[in-house]
């Protein structure tokens, strides 16, 4: 009997190919993974923003490339009463509309948080103003505010007989301003109401029961349980709402185009008016750039003043 030696075999790990090694190399991986996101951000966010800021410091017009003029555009705007009127109206529009949206939105959310018949149907109906395209609802409001065909005027004058003359919604400064704010509030309520409703539903019912046993009246339960517990989501929703309202364009441009006599121009509509319609691209850019500090301020304010609460922060034991 012969003993045959087993063929000698040593286990060799297969060497990974150059491609596998490349994909194991961390710096390469980082670049590959980040590239799509960074690319998209650069092309669609950074470049337009950068271009806008750059244009603000030049004297570009449509069809004529500009040169660097420093702060000249801003210096001109400082002297421009129309610009200041737009700044004022932007702030006023945002402030009044936000207060209106939150007062009515919170009220609606509180109503919907109760057990109502046809709850989901009502919720769906409430979302309607938000899902209708803005321009469409702007046209609807344009008709509602029309000097001759306004349904509101018709109801007050022809049906109820409470007034002699038709309302002049858009013909003079302040009525026009408030009419636009009303349209904006109408459009903004659903977003606020649905977000706050989501916030309300995170509050445990047993907290209200505990408060009830502790002797809290409905108003006290609202001010001492609901409001503080809703504050974090309120802050976020308010930040978004302020940004959307401050940068609003469609409603105003579709209903009044900034008129009468430029009194309802927001900064966004004025920027478009001057930059595109008026061909002063650089000046429009300068107006748009002037919006940035307001937005940064609004964001920081709600972030620091409203959103951060000690009781929300982690489990830290001091």
């Amino acid at each position: 009997m012969s003993v045959t030696a087993a063929p000698s075999w040593s286990h060799t790990r297969p060497q990974p190919g150059w491609l596998a090694r490349l994909f194991d190399w961390k710096p390469f991986l980082i670049v590959v993974c980040l590239l799509p996101a960074v690319g998209l951000l650069t092309v669609f966010l950074t470049y337009p923003l950068g271009l806008g800021v750059w244009l603000a410091f030049t004297d570009t017009k449509i069809g004529r490339s500009g040169r660097w003029v420093g702060l000249e555009n801003f210096a001109y705007l400082m002297e421009d009463p129309t610009f200041w009127s737009a700044v004022f109206y932007s702030v006023f529009y945002t402030a009044v509309a936000t207060v209106g949206k939150f007062a009515l939105g919170l009220w609606l959310a509180l109503l919907l948080n109760n057990h109502l018949p046809f709850k989901s149907l009502i919720r769906a109906i409430i979302l309607m103003p938000w899902i209708v395209p803005t321009v469409l609802s702007a046209i609807a409001f344009w008709w509602i505010y029309d000097p001759q065909f306004s349904i509101i005027s018709y109801v007050f004058v022809d049906v109820l007989g409470l007034r002699e003359r038709y309302f002049d919604f858009l013909g003079s400064t302040w009525p026009a301003r408030f009419s636009l704010i009303a349209a904006n509030i109408w459009r903004g309520i659903p977003f606020v109401a649905i977000c706050l409703l989501a916030g309300l539903q995170t509050i445990s019912p047993s907290l209200y029961e505990a408060a009830l046993l502790d002797g809290a009246t409905p108003w006290q339960r609202f001010t001492r349980i609901t409001v503080p517990l809703l504050m974090p989501i309120l802050a976020i929703v308010m930040t978004f709402s302020i940004i959307f309202t401050f940068t609003d364009f469609q409603l105003v441009y579709a209903i009044t185009r900034g008129g009468p006599v430029n009194s309802t121009h927001l900064m966004a509509t004025l920027a478009f008016q001057r930059g595109i319609a008026g061909q002063e691209l650089a000046e429009g850019a300068a107006i748009a750039v002037s919006m940035i500090p307001f937005l940064v301020f609004a964001t920081l304010f709600s972030y620091f003043a409203l959103a951060r609460r000690k009781w929300q922060q982690g489990e830290s034991n001091d």
Partner: peptide, 28 residues
């Protein structure tokens, strides 16, 4: 409930998350 002169401890405790221990106890 508030006039029944009872106090209840809930299964999930129902402590007010935004109040300190002192304020929770002092709430009523």
């Amino acid at each position: 409930p508030k006039d029944r002169d009872i106090a209840m401890v809930f299964q999930n405790y129902a402590l007010y998350p935004h109040m300190t221990v002192r304020d929770n106890m002092a709430f009523s």
